[in-house]
């Protein structure tokens, strides 16, 4: 008798993200960079055409990466490979699933394809990670089928202040829900613009039902440890590594700081001699139309 296998269940989709907890996911644009990330101890890589800092600098429409590039990266490493699709671009997502990437990031870093709808992620076997700036946004993405959440931050800036704002907002909103009585949760659901059963679940458990990483602006080991101390399950580092002076050393240092996030001595030691950090842009100097975190809703 053959036992039945159940593929693409919620548990299996969310489960892979569980395995990445405590780790660092790095943006890479070539197979060589993917190897450097893997050697440094990344738990996964995000394959994309241009890192956010370059998307910002060069402008234009940012799309899904070339399938050749994604395949080269899948070939080059044995850790999970994620890739980005534009918000609402379900055909890019279909293509990425056909390429057998391990996770799809429906990402505001790319130019949105739909300014109304996100992708219906339940229709896919491959799991999705989505960005969120607040709890309501996170819950709407989970309702659409996201199996992992990353707070958005402001990608490509090297400025950690937006990442800080988003994780504090989400944590604060979760804590506020936990303090509400049952009869207040109906209005809370209305205010969060999220389904009541999910709001009720979070009020009861005090946490999201999926893993939450932090992204957007993390450039140093101390930035990564900061996010972990604030309760992140792990960190995404985009432009911060390959736009810095010594990517291999910086990548390894950020991994180490993420593991030993509570040990300032280790963070001090690992922050030494890393060369130039990415130059960065202050988020306050960015005019509103250039803020990526405001894409998606």
């Amino acid at each position: 008798m053959s036992e039945q296998k159940f593929e693409a269940t919620n548990l299996v989709k969310r489960g892979l993200a569980e395995m990445l907890k405590g780790g660092v996911i790095m943006d890479v644009v070539t197979a060589d960079q993917a190897k450097i990330a893997e050697d440094a101890g990344a738990v996964a890589v995000m394959a994309l055409e241009r890192v956010p800092a370059d998307i910002r600098a060069q402008g234009g429409v940012a799309r899904m990466s070339d399938p050749d590039l994604i395949e080269q990266i899948i070939e080059a490493v044995s850790i999970p490979v994620m890739a980005k699709a534009r918000i609402g671009h379900f055909v890019e997502a279909q293509v990425l699933q056909a390429l057998e990437v391990d996770y799809i990031d429906e990402s505001e870093v790319l130019s949105p394809a739909d300014y109304v709808n996100h992708i219906d992620k339940w229709g896919f076997d491959v799991p999705f990670v989505c960005g969120a700036t607040n709890l309501g946004e996170a819950l709407r993405r989970i309702t659409e089928g996201a199996a992992m959440i990353r707070s958005k931050g402001e990608a490509g800036t090297g400025d950690v202040s937006e990442a800080m704002k988003h994780i504090r907002t989400i944590r604060g909103e979760i804590a506020a829900l936990s303090a509400k009585s049952d009869d207040e949760l109906y209005v809370a659901a209305k205010e969060l613009q999220a389904p009541y059963p999910l709001v009720k679940e979070i009020a009861t458990t005090g946490k999201l039902p999926v893993v939450m990483f932090v992204a957007g602006g993390i450039a140093t080991p101390a930035d990564a440890a900061l996010m972990m101390q604030l309760g992140a399950d792990g960190v995404f580092v985009g432009s911060g590594i390959f736009k810095s002076g010594n990517p291999a050393a910086r990548a390894a240092a950020i991994v180490r700081a993420t593991t030993y996030f509570n040990d300032p001595k280790v963070i001090a030691e690992t922050s030494r001699g890393l060369g130039e950090a990415m130059v960065g842009i202050n988020v306050n100097d960015l005019p509103a139309p250039h803020r990526l975190a405001e894409r998606g809703w």
Partner: peptide, 25 residues
């Protein structure tokens, strides 16, 4: 078993007791 899209859940008997578990990559 392949990449993430081939990850699955199944019921297995562990030392005499059946349990549903997850096989992820």
């Amino acid at each position: 078993y392949g990449g993430q899209t081939h990850s699955f859940e199944a019921e297995v008997v562990i030392a005499g007791e059946a349990e549903r578990v997850a096989f992820i990559r």
